[in-house]
Write a protein that binds this DNA or RNA. Sequence first.
DNA 1: AAGCTGCCTTAGAAGCTCTAAGGAAACATA
DNA 2: TATGTTTCCTTAGAGCTTCTAAGGCAGCTT
Lengths: 244, 244
Amino acid sequence: MTTRVQAQVTSRRDRLREATLAEIHEAARGLLTSRGSDAVTMNAVAREVGMSGPALYHYFKGHEELVGAVTARFFRELTGEMEAARDAHAEDSLDIRLLATCRAMRAWATAHPAEFGWIFARPIPSVHHEPGSARLVAGERFETVLRDQVMELWETRPFPVPDLTELAPSLREQLHAYAESVGGRLPPEAAHVFLTCWSRLYGLLCMEVLRQLDSVYSDMEPVYEECLRELAGLLGLEYDGGGR
Amino acid sequence: MTTRVQAQVTSRRDRLREATLAEIHEAARGLLTSRGSDAVTMNAVAREVGMSGPALYHYFKGHEELVGAVTARFFRELTGEMEAARDAHAEDSLDIRLLATCRAMRAWATAHPAEFGWIFARPIPSVHHEPGSARLVAGERFETVLRDQVMELWETRPFPVPDLTELAPSLREQLHAYAESVGGRLPPEAAHVFLTCWSRLYGLLCMEVLRQLDSVYSDMEPVYEECLRELAGLLGLEYDGGGR
DNA sequence: AAGCTGCCTTAGAAGCTCTAAGGAAACATA
DNA sequence: TATGTTTCCTTAGAGCTTCTAAGGCAGCTT
């Protein structure tokens, strides 16, 4: 179709559309944070950006897709914050960089609990796990930020790993498959350590944002720090105090 | 009002009402598991039990309250399963009993993912954290099942505890407050160990049911078992193989 | 200049939550 | 036994929602 104008990536129309899309995302986010999940309706979002109702269906196939797109954008924002923290410590040691990345994750999550809630607690009901979905792509990039750093750590200064033969055969196979799937840069033993760290940290953060520990802790910050200290131990990192 | 008939706790009407309530809960659950969270509407539930629409408002103030009541019932069912597992091993060692309780938790959660999802991922949007809410009472009883066993363990065969002075002051204070709040049967050090175990286990289960680790593990059972093995180590329990 | 495409509109069907008003049956009381 | 109250359920309806259908208009392409 567009053979000659291929070079001109952003036509006037494209730019307008992009601006409208950004406005829509902003409106949806505003409704989410100010009036809750249920307030993010097609009509309300459309009202907010100044168009009336069904116009939104030119941008999204339906409510579900809008929520999915907004969620993916949140996911990218979170990942971006983590990458920014990583890059801000490009000159520092890997130890400091890794911990800073982890802290950036919690910082964004606790500053944007509703958004973070959508990231992991939304896709329960509808099972839209299509392979190429923006949600999954964003999730992949998310996981990569820390994984890459652990890979770098492994390659420059290997951390102690457990004996895999003590694990259940099924788990061992899964670890092999995972190690394979990430390009073999981590052997299964190291993958196990990374995944242990990852699920402890991410799990703790989920619990905090889902407020499952409200009756136990009034301030989760030192709990998260304590978890980081443990992970530093597992990965042979030097833990830099509270990081204040 | 009812002065003389006070003794007769369940009148004919009460029994009828109770039966209708049970039917409503059953219908709501059926809709949730078969057609997803969004299918649990007042109208649909009413249709399912054979009454038309607004009749449900004689049983619940609104949609929110119905969902809350159903969720609390799920919570009680989960706790009941854990208590049943505990009682089924009343003759066995505390080690076996504790692990069985933890396994019962995952067994129910994985067998009823939608229900478990409501338990922890529902109350994000609406901030209904009233002190006496059925949700919180159920949560308290839930946490108690394991906590009581860890208390018993602590009193009969204390597990190793870390030095609290290495922890952040804020965390130390919170642990003291928590130890206080559970009747002083656990010192802050032991409370810290229990809470570490609890949040690791519960966090991992949340991640599994929220399907946050789908791209990593295909079967979380051995991962959960591995976590249990670690916790057994922390608590000085004898770990009984896969438990198969 | 003519046509296609993209953006937006209003109309409207179907379903949702929830309130209002009222009938019928069961219970309590005089 | 007669009367009143409470409980359970009904229909009607307002005001939301999602989403489809049909059409107008502006701007890009040819």
